[in-house]
Design a protein around this nucleic acid. Sequence first.
RNA 1: GCCGGAGUGGCGGAAUGGCAGACGCGACGGAUUCAAAAUCCGUUGCCCGCAAGGGCGUGUGGGUUCAAGUCCCACCUCCGGCACCA
Length: 955
Amino acid sequence: MLSRTGPELMPRYTPSRIEPKWQTWWETNHTFASPRLPGERKRYILDMFPYPSGDGLHVGHPEGYTATDIVSRFERMRGTSVMHPMGFDAFGLPAEEHAIRTGTPPAESTRRNIDTFRRQLKMLGFSYDWSREIATTDPGYVRWTQWIFLVLFDTWFDATENRGRPIAELPIPEDVQTAGSQAVARYRDDHRLAYQSEAPVNWCPALGTVLANEEVVGGVSERGGHPVVRLPLRQWMLRITAYADRLDRELDGLAWPESIKKLQRDWIGRSTGAEVDFFIGESSGSEPDEAGFNAWKQGRASADFPGKPGADVLRVYTTRPDTLYGVTAMVIAPEHPAVAKLTTPAARPAVEAYCEAAARKSDLDRTDLAREKSGVFTGSYCRHPLDGRLVPIWVADYVLASYGTGAIMSVPAHDTRDHEFAVAFGLEIVRVIESSDGGESELPFTDHGRAVNSASYDGLATADFISRVAADLESAGLGRAAVNYKLRDWLFSRQRFWGEPFPILHELDAEGNETGLVRGVPESELPVPLPVLADFKPGNTPDPPLSRADADWLFVEIDGVRYRRETNTMPQWAGSCWYELRFLDPHNSERFIDPEVERAWMPVDLYVGGAEHAVLHLLYARFWHKVLHDRGHVSWPEPFGRLVNQGMILGEMEFTGYRHPQGGWLSAEQTRAHPTQPGVTIDRESGDEAAPARVPAEQVEKQGEHFVLRDAPTIRVDSRAYKMSKSRGNVVNPDQIVQEFGADSLRLYEMFMGPLEATKPWSTAGVGGVRTFLERCWRLVVDERAEEPVLSASVCDDPADEPQLQELHRMLDKVTADIESLSFNTAIARMMEFVNFCTPLTKRPRALLEPFVKALSPFAPHLAEELWQVLGQPAPVSLAAWPEVEQRYLHDATVEIPVQIMGKLRGRVTVDAAADADTMIAAATADPRIAELLEGKTIVKTIAVPGRMVNFVIR
RNA sequence: GCCGGAGUGGCGGAAUGGCAGACGCGACGGAUUCAAAAUCCGUUGCCCGCAAGGGCGUGUGGGUUCAAGUCCCACCUCCGGCACCA
């Protein structure tokens, strides 16, 4: 019996023998080493490096990696200098959780996981320059991550120049200057891009850490789905909001998918509108009197709009200043600083109770569950800046303290949320916009339209109103145009062990208490290593594990001053914010990168990875890069020139039937999803839970639009592919696929499945299909009956004939163009056609096979090297010159064109490829069948596109 | 709710406004074989027809055009993301 993989049968295509052989050869010969500096044409082709999880590689990884590998190999063969490195994003929570469970230090399990990943990546034959491998956990890498943090710490953002500058250049106001050096230090600290803040944070008791806003989804942690509560804590923040404008605008020049750019823009959330001050008076009274208001207004008219709101006003931000006359209430966030002042004695108990409840509420309670608007009246009023009427001030948690000014003007007629709030509390609703067509539109009406009930502005279109009123407010000193961003500053510290320590020291006084002054660790003492700990467990309090380190780690003395180290660690994102730079100069111990190398290789020309990083990683990395750029450390403002997102690979297609609780089948259309429990299906009528059951494909057939059970055609079954997951048991293991089919087959299959960017279901039968193709390639060249791989007798030195050369060059033309456009699936299809063409040939000229093997080599590199060797060519084909496409073989002398009558295909005629319209029409009418159909009809119009088609319009 | 993306044979998918379904999987038939596997050759959108041929077909309904999977309008379904940002 013959087996596919039996080593005794070498003449058959045996990946398990040739793949390790060539992997060793490439490694020994440093085939894919990149030069320090590129030649004339360079390509920096980068994968998003993986987090080395304990599960090893899954089949999603090789998809993007194969795509970039094909492009890298192709570019090398064309003589381009290629940078194609790989490394590991090795800090992160899972290693630490594993450590807590098993007692294994994270460094150890991380090293093991990296070893597994590296083995698996090498097994797939990727042409990485492994001498450039980095892990974010390497001390030599951490050193420079910490160094970049110190750059952030040393930078302030100059808003007038719109760029980051050294903190030493920060202008110090005179009053601060006179207040002494401590005041100056604090002033500087308040302006650094890396700063400490005491703001409420998302504390996750289950994970024992605080999380970034981005890591909290719907009130629970993104990782693990644990509840998150809000807690005030001292934290390190990065002032990414300073760069919001540039992060938004500078997306324009990038060759990124528009959808990703849009996601980033939406996340940054730039909005334009106006800030407006509402008079509340100096004293904490409930109704500011009219005289005071008039005096205030007069004062404002002769002065500039204050940069910061005084205690006598409530400042709001609105994108719709045109609705100013529709204001019927002011609403401030429970955390707004003026809450206490505005609360009247009578209202105090209710307001305090409300604010306390809001503070305790997690984001989950505030959003998902509490859709009903809640709020409480403060008892106070403010004065409307334009018409002077009294407007009640409410507190409600639908207003966020962290956005805009933390206070809004409520316009129930023209804002959905304000409308809900007004309805819930019986507030007045005043229409100030009608639709442009004059129709009585329903409220709330949030579209643009025409102003009504707005004094002298009546009749103005919304856009005109906005610009007019903004100018009027500005000149009256009552408001000004303003820009706001949804983006918040980046909460950058974590109370975990397995992350980069901050290179920061807190000054201690004689009693050992922190003075509040901080300094960076001297550059010469980087990296700050992680301390040796016996126990990695996070505590019940937000005290970081590092605070339990030995005193000789924890305390430092410099120039006679004692310091305590910062004991927070950086989040996992830190390492991936600049790895694209370090790959270019991974062993440099003098600088984080040699500027000459940086200038020569950056930016990344092709960056491929999953769309799940569309916002966070890519935004953070762009931010760091811009800071480094502003400080003169890198030459380009953006790190990634072209970005492509590979699609997700789903599990195999599944048919699912539903079992009725009383037994028997339930047709799929009689079921629906459980209203609250995700993943649970119930009987539409009875509400009973329906048990899903996987149905084998052979028991199913298609009937009209749906799939039904073959034995019970009234029972519909669902058919779809699901995300791979351990719980569903549909995870495909790359090791197993390589063992069964070979790495080349896995690579080729993943590229053949469909477009790179599409989501597509896995099919192991499909891997078998491309394996068959590779076997056909093998038999084209190799004698199957010999003991050792030798050339097939049908391979000859005869020149290739014209039709063969045409086939060859058309294939090469298509494959070349398709690699350039990352359309690997169609490139492979074209090579399959070429092999189908060659298979029946009893004499197969080398002139045909050798260029084909070259074209195949980026896709199936091991097989290509082996075939190249069998053909007697010197290795490696991986660096052979990409075959030239000869244009003269691309075009036929004659073409067959369709002939249509009234747009319907009625025949075909063969004409000279260069035939003009008249010649084509003549040929078409000369065709007996066409002539017959045209007989007795009047030709109204004739369309002839040279080389394409002819169409007769008849009557 | 809002924002993306996608709906084409039994399945994955191809198609600069110009011959819909390339290529692959699956299925069916043939050659080879004692037999099977493997291999090679062929057929394979649906309907009518012995055939020649004809009709219908790219989620639904309309439109533009000599010609629409492709462009425009309205809608349906699925997938992904965001979700009180004033």
